[in-house]
Amino acid sequence: MTIRVAAVADIHLSEASRGTYRKRLDGIEHRADVLLVGGDLTRHGTVAEAQVVADEFRDLPIPAVFVLGNHDYHSNAEEEMAELLRAAGLIVLDDSAAAVLDGRLGIAGGKGFGGGFAGKCASEFGEPETKAFVRHTREIADRWRVALKGLETEHRVVLSHYAPIKETLEGEPPEIYPFLGSYLLAEAADAEGADLIIHGHAHRGTEKGVTPGGIRVRNVALPVLGRAYAIYSLAEAGW
């Protein structure tokens, strides 16, 4: 049986969004089996905004899996935000994995980070600030490998905020690609295997791309989609 994955990112809810977002999800249980939300849930990363997100997504009839984005870190309340969402029955990945749909679908991932793409990226060299920037992404990618390895599900999907390839960034100025994603994220997924990688962050990017290893990548940032969410059907055979 195929699994229908609904996905969206960069929903940027504010306190003014209270009571307005939920209607976009009406009837989602007839269209999809699971909903993935790829970060930038809020505008400023405040606890008050997080509460709006928790309330708008609470008690959905299908499982909902979230990662946070850079906006969600802006007020240093990311841990509280994750707790609020979990208390509302939502799954939040933080370089971790979860299995849903009776173990048929595994989702691994987290925020991700930048650094750039092979041949045009930063390295762990020089000043401590540069090393720390690149190390952050490398450590995330290492944790994703562990998270993916631990999944024994029929299908695997990686959920990220930052982009794993540059193809889905087309439309963004190339000068800012290193701030939009890193090839290390794609490399981790290619090494461990996955059916699909979902990300957001690049509002001016492109929906569809593929990793060097052949995994389909979808940029589901709301401005890219222009629709409430995308739906991807995973066929019977897994990765």
Binding site: R4, R31, R216, L222, R227, A228, A230, I231, S233, A235
Partner: peptide, 11 residues
């Protein structure tokens, strides 16, 4: 502008 979810893509 946010439209209806639209059709699904079979991967």
């Amino acid at each position: 502008q946010v439209g209806e979810p639209g059709e699904e893509e079979l991967l």
